[in-house]
Amino acid sequence: MNGVPMAHGLVLAAVLFALGLAGLMFRRNMVFMLLSLEVMLNAAGLAFIVAGTAWGQAEGQAMFLLVITLAAAEASVGLALLNQLYRRFKTLDIDTASGMRG
């Protein structure tokens, strides 16, 4: 298969992952944190696809299906939590929700 070299795909995946991670670390709004998480998951999925295609293996795509499922489950649980969080604290700021004193 010709076209995009594997390295390019992997770099894109890494950049997406890093962006997602940075978003997760620096955003306080929970909606954005969930979005960042999705981005990171998809970055991982992209890496699987790229590698699978490069080596001609089907497992890459199978793993991507798994990642999508995981992402869907994560999104639904996350959104439910987000909903509850907003109802209880009237804010989406994750830090104010911390009840532990540490």
Binding site: L24, M25, F26, M33, I94, D95, S98, G99, M100, G102
Partner: peptide
């Protein structure tokens, strides 16, 4: 040690990274 368990989600994320 208990100071590290502050319930700050982002702190956990950073430390994991």
């Amino acid at each position: 040690l208990s100071r590290t368990q502050g319930g700050k989600l982002r702190f956990y994320a950073v430390s994991m990274v």
